[in-house]
């Protein structure tokens, strides 16, 4: 179980929630509402005393143990080493020896086998996004936080990633940050909606997407057309 207890940091104010085993959550919220800050606090990139995993304070875990429990996939690859290849990158995600045979499989599932020997610096933003997800599939932490995993992907790749998130045995518990309401709706995970660093909504998926509730969160910027959530570009704010 993952437990965040009264976490306050920068924009975040008194955030508390629990994530049981085999439970996933989608974090929604406007730009600057604190989604990524929350993610970084949960994985301890921002040091804090409020997060407990499997009954142990994350601050007190050994580095190795922490890596087995939690992983955070940022929105951008951000590799400094200009000669690091895709294959190198995937290998660095191995934290337990037994996973090494999965690497080819992961490349194949994501359809990026042809990029195996390419340098990470030369990848397009979409290819980088796929590689990031590949890294998470090799790492296989108990909890994986993915920050906007589909933001840079084309439509077909979005479907691939959605299928992987939904069905792949490579992920255990997922925390997904996204702006894509369709993805959030299709995943049917619990929703955690942040507004200016506070939890506005935490609960099941369906009530969140009711027209009335949606309007209270996003105003008229979103239109529900037959269960698809379209951005209403004609809306004058």
């Amino acid at each position: 179980m993952l437990h965040v207890d009264n976490l306050s940091h920068q924009i975040l104010k008194h955030i508390s929630f629990k994530l049981e085993h085999n439970q996933n959550v989608t974090i929604l919220g406007s730009n600057g509402s604190g989604k990524t800050t929350l993610a970084k606090a949960i994985c301890h990139l921002i040091h804090n005393d409020s997060v407990t995993i499997e009954g142990q304070k994350i601050a007190l875990l050994s580095a190795k143990q922490r890596a087995q429990y939690i992983n955070f996939i940022p929105a951008k690859l951000g590799i400094y080493d200009e000669y690091l290849t895709v294959w190198d990158y995937l290998n660095l995600n191995i934290i337990q020896e037994k996973q090494s045979d999965h690497l080819h499989n992961v490349l194949e599932l994501l359809g990026i086998t042809h990029l195996k020997n390419k340098q990470c610096h030369k990848l397009s933003s979409g290819e980088s996004a796929l590689l990031l997800i590949g890294g998470a599939m090799v790492h296989q932490a108990l909890y994986t936080i993915l920050d906007e995993p589909t933001a840079n992907l084309d439509q077909a790749k979005k479907v691939t990633v959605y299928q992987l998130l939904k069905n792949s045995p490579y992920f255990h518990n997922k925390i997904i940050i996204t702006h894509d309401l369709n993805l959030a709706y299709k995943l049917r995970y619990n929703i955690l909606f942040l507004e200016e660093g506070k939890v506005q909504y935490h609960g099941p998926c369906e009530p969140f997407f009711e027209q009335k509730h949606l309007k209270s969160c996003f105003g008229n910027a979103i239109k529900n057309i037959d269960g698809n959530f379209m951005v209403n570009y004609d809306e004058t704010l």
Partner: peptide, 20 residues
């Protein structure tokens, strides 16, 4: 060498892979 490689890739990345 693996630690150096991780640190050179990205500091956050190295942290998340269990490097002190």
């Amino acid at each position: 060498r693996k630690e150096v490689k991780l640190l050179l890739a990205s500091l956050d990345f190295a942290f998340l892979k269990g490097i002190e």
